[in-house]
């Protein structure tokens, strides 16, 4: 495996995405739709910061589910996965696609975070360092789990429905930790108070990446 090969796969993914808009349009529309629904459903009510922290991560989770599987599903549907298998080793493919998914979900989470802060007046963040750190580490965790899951479900017949169903139990600890860390950011906690949450998020990502790296060859080849 060479990182240069992974880098070329990463660049290929971006160029391909900007030309085909396989995931990007769907993701952005999903964000707009879900945020509108939340805004309408809140109406004149004043939900607590706990509830709003939860809905933020629900939007991020389902947006990720609607777009992150595309990286492998599109290869299978277009019949290019075998081409890729004949060109490079599986580790390079995994690293390239993992970084692509990470950047995609990070950009998306930042857009969701900014939109949330702008449009939902009741959502007030007091510790922006904790908030943005949670967005960053949460995105890394989401990308680490969804990349291997996308590779698995790309070979199944019921791709669309299988992805969130499989992802939910795996991502539950990550989502709960992200919600807790977001709550801390709305309470004005110090960075040192959120260290435990960040440690869980980092550990989750490291474990997911290491496990995925070991099993990806089996998933990708047969």
């Amino acid at each position: 495996m060479t990182f240069i090969t992974s880098y070329h796969i990463f660049i290929k993914e971006f160029v391909s995405e900007f030309r085909t808009r396989y995931a990007l349009n769907a993701l952005l529309m999903f964000v707009v739709t879900t945020l509108s629904i939340i805004l309408f459903s809140i109406g004149k009510e004043s939900p607590t910061q706990d509830i709003l922290s939860g809905t933020l991560w629900i939007v991020i989770f389902f947006s990720a589910m609607s777009g992150l599987s595309r990286t492998f599903v599109a290869e299978e549907e277009r019949g290019t996965s075998m081409t890729l298998r004949l060109l490079v080793n599986s580790s390079s493919v995994y690293i390239g696609k993992l970084f692509y998914n990470f950047i995609l979900i990070l950009v998306l989470s930042v857009i969701i975070g900014i939109s949330y802060l702008l449009f939902i007046k009741e959502f007030t963040v007091k510790s922006f360092d904790i908030f943005w750190m949670t967005i960053f580490l949460g995105s890394a965790g989401l990308a680490s789990a969804s990349t291997i899951l996308a590779a698995i479900i790309a070979k199944a017949n019921t791709k669309g429905t299988l992805f969130p169903v499989l992802a939910f139990p795996i991502l539950l600890p990550l989502l709960l930790t992200c919600i807790n860390a977001t709550k801390l950011s709305t309470e004005g906690a110090f960075m040192s108070e959120a260290v435990k949450e960040f440690q869980i998020l980092i550990s989750f990502t490291v474990v997911m990446v290491a496990t995925s790296f070991l099993v990806f060859d089996f998933v990708w080849k047969d």
Partner: peptide, 29 residues
């Protein structure tokens, strides 16, 4: 993969890229 070249009906190249871009991608990887 470094030693084999395959041509088959079920093997596809990237349709959103030109022939030149496809070959350039292959050269790089």
């Amino acid at each position: 993969y470094p030693h084999i070249g395959l041509v088959s009906p079920y093997l596809n190249l990237y349709e959103e890229f030109s022939a030149e871009e496809n070959l350039s991608f292959i050269m790089k990887v």
